[in-house]
Design a protein around this nucleic acid. Sequence first.
DNA 1: TGTAATTTCATACTAAAGTATGAGCCTTAA
DNA 2: TTAAGGCTCATACTTTAGTATGAAATTACA
Lengths: 140, 140
Amino acid sequence: MFKVILRFGLIIAALLILFQLSKMSLFIPEMSQDLTIGLVGAAFIGLGVYLGLKFRKVEIIEVSPSIEIDHDRIQSLGLTEREMEVLHHIAEGCSNIEIGEKLFVSENTIKTHVSNLFVKLDVKRRTQAVTRAKELRIIQ
Amino acid sequence: MFKVILRFGLIIAALLILFQLSKMSLFIPEMSQDLTIGLVGAAFIGLGVYLGLKFRKVEIIEVSPSIEIDHDRIQSLGLTEREMEVLHHIAEGCSNIEIGEKLFVSENTIKTHVSNLFVKLDVKRRTQAVTRAKELRIIQ
DNA sequence: TGTAATTTCATACTAAAGTATGAGCCTTAA
DNA sequence: TTAAGGCTCATACTTTAGTATGAAATTACA
């Protein structure tokens, strides 16, 4: 509210100065009318731009902020490429056997990856791993 | 590009008209200088507002479109209140025992709910249930 | 070329998840 | 006052998941 009052005050002050200027030009005949109009125009155009920007409706466009993957965090957690692959498949809801089939390795291998993953993410279950990974923004 | 040229053309035209106006006031002395300045001011303030709005940077505020829960789908799938509660806790990464503790019922009860949930969601595993539930927009 | 990190796999567990079935209790509505 | 639906629980079982440990093969890199 205070800000609004301040702004209108400034606008009124600007107007007064401009009208004062217009009277001055009466006493300074060598100041051409064109110049006066130029000055007035410049001042008002500035004022107009200011008002236009200040009191415009803020345009809110709903854009789902593309959740950026935090590669630095992946690094700092020491997650390997293979572990990230496994993590993605876990997030899709795959079983260990299914992940093994997709990556052409044994279930045991997947179990190893999963266990290492849990240690690095500090979780106990795969469902936790998914929520944690999303919190940490290392998966979508 | 054409639009830009058109706009600048209009601006130039407006300027010419204003200067013409200023000259007219020389031949129409009864038209006071204050009035001239007022007209010029009004014109330029309008121009300023127009320019300010047209050539502003478009402000894009990233807002995640709140994913609306599809209550109709929950209905049509026949998911009960209790099952939804369990589903939410599954999505959080809770174990059956933990969910039981939170809802003050036994692990066996949770298992029953979970099994019924899987049938209704047509999935085999809890991780799948979570992804499916998100697809169906019945949880966040 | 040697070393560290990654990936792979196995075995042998334990723990948790999931299935199937039956049943008791409560509320709500016909 | 039944019947239905929802919630609870149990038992018994099968299947996955997860842990611990050790080890071989591969890759990358100094």
